[in-house]
Design a protein around this nucleic acid. Structure first.
Lengths: 193, 193
DNA sequence: GTCTATAAGATGATAGAC
DNA sequence: GTCTATCATCTTATAGAC
């Protein structure tokens, strides 16, 4: 499947895995070249610099995630199920417990990230908070959710909880830890104040 | 103040700042040598390897944080104030919004961290959750806090929320974002289910 | 589009003088 | 305890043949 994709895409596939497991600073053109059995120079043909490669990777992931959210909205009309599916999307990113969400990892690399990538990171988080705020607002209107204050504030806290849970769970290589924290975060919206 | 401390300590001071802003992979002996106006070889005299330097840094931070928690307990007898002070400790680690909590950063580097440091990271998180669980349990017994389920589960969710809020806030260079999420997390314990 | 070859610089680390 | 000098290796990146 990956082997029939164009080289430019396969490069991003490998890079995505490397960023999720090692971070921006700890992956190299040599790692990608080895994984694909090509030469480093070939990667430079497709992506002139590491900054450009990472920017392309971030943009692809952001677009794919946005598309998946549209799918979720089409598939699940009710806010509760939408939210549960959203949490599942995050949990899947953890894989066996050794991957971090791509954007969570890039956020941790914010201090050394090329500016174009950094802008993309903040845009991604803004996307997530906006989407969650809409789901939460609708859920409260339907009396499926209960929470205090503005939906965007509740959305920011939920996103932070999910990202932090991934960070801690991955350090422990423990997907169950993420699942437990996530269900508590969702539970506090569906059953309390 | 830093300039009268022994070299071994000053090395860790600089390393701490570098890890908090750049992460494990993105700091080097050369960075520390430049900051202290000494040579790289002098650093190797104090810490034979980068792994050993980072392990020493992690151990120092963990011990210092534990000591600060004892101070908080001595100073504030009531759970609500203890918790507010705890959140403050985290917020201070952000500095101007460009530092991550040392252990949050190390957790994000889990994929490439020397095993000894990684063990230290999970120990630190266990420390935090245990301390928070005790504060939460006592707060619920005194009817200052309200939450469902076991105190350790609530503690895990709170810690995850704080770490995630730091991650997102730092990416945005926005301390206020952390403060807003943190006060919402605390608020959900003091005023709701 | 992929290759070989190469560049200029950084990396963690060591030997041995002072 | 700090220095100079050096090491092998890795990094991103480029030139030019095929």
């Amino acid at each position: 499947m990956a082997s029939i994709a164009p080289t430019a895409d396969r490069i991003l596939d490998i890079a995505e895995d490397l960023v999720q497991t090692r971070g921006y600073e700890a992956f190299s053109y040599a790692d990608i070249a080895d994984a694909l059995s090509i030469r480093k120079a070939s990667i430079h043909y497709h992506y002139a610099s590491k900054a450009e490669l990472t920017r392309a990777l971030a943009a692809r992931y952001r677009a794919a995630f946005a598309a998946r959210l549209l799918q979720v909205e089409a598939e699940f009309p009710d806010p509760t199920r939408r939210l549960m599916r959203y949490v599942r999307l995050f949990q899947d990113a953890l894989r066996e417990g050794d991957h971090m969400c791509l954007y969570g990892m890039l956020a941790s690399d914010a201090g050394t990230l090329p500016e174009a990538v950094r802008t993309e990171v903040n845009g991604f988080f803004a996307d997530q908070e906006a989407w969650l705020a809409r789901v939460l607002a609708e859920g409260r209107a339907r009396e499926e959710f209960r929470f205090d204050g503005r939906p965007d504030a509740a959305a920011a806290a939920l996103l932070a909880g999910l990202e932090g849970a991934m960070l801690v769970a991955r350090s422990r290589r423990d997907v169950a830890h993420f699942a437990a924290v996530a269900s508590r975060l969702v539970g506090s919206l569906t059953s309390g104040g």
